[in-house]
Design a protein around this nucleic acid. Sequence first.
DNA 1: CGATTGACACCAA
DNA 2: ATTGGTGCCAATC
Length: 117
Amino acid sequence: MNYSENSKDFFQLVYQVCREIPYGRATSYGTIAKYLGSGRSSRMVGWAMNNAHQQNPPVPAHRVVNRNGQLTGKMHFANPMEMETLLKMEGITVEKDQITNFKKVFWDPSIELDLEA
DNA sequence: CGATTGACACCAA
DNA sequence: ATTGGTGCCAATC
């Protein structure tokens, strides 16, 4: 598929960025929103995630958390506990639904995302 | 078309 | 530091 269809939908853009999140990393809604140029439209990112489950390929929404590194959307997963499990499985420390080493696993698309020049 | 919602973020008290 | 309220943008009812 043409990845150049970035002007398709705001959602698709969010999904793509989420899929680009490397293993063992996580980012926040605001960061993604900002990367997309929306800045404070962090809510839209979460809104987009609502459909993430019906996207194909599926979006690793478990790597997307709020600015606090808190798993706010884990309840939206088929199995809430799966979100924590996935994060822990990737080496991310999760305690009380919050990423303790969020600062370490934090991933910034505008920095580490290589869009193949 | 108008009002409400939403997996957030930021500012003020 | 913690809690509460407001702001943003788009989608859904």
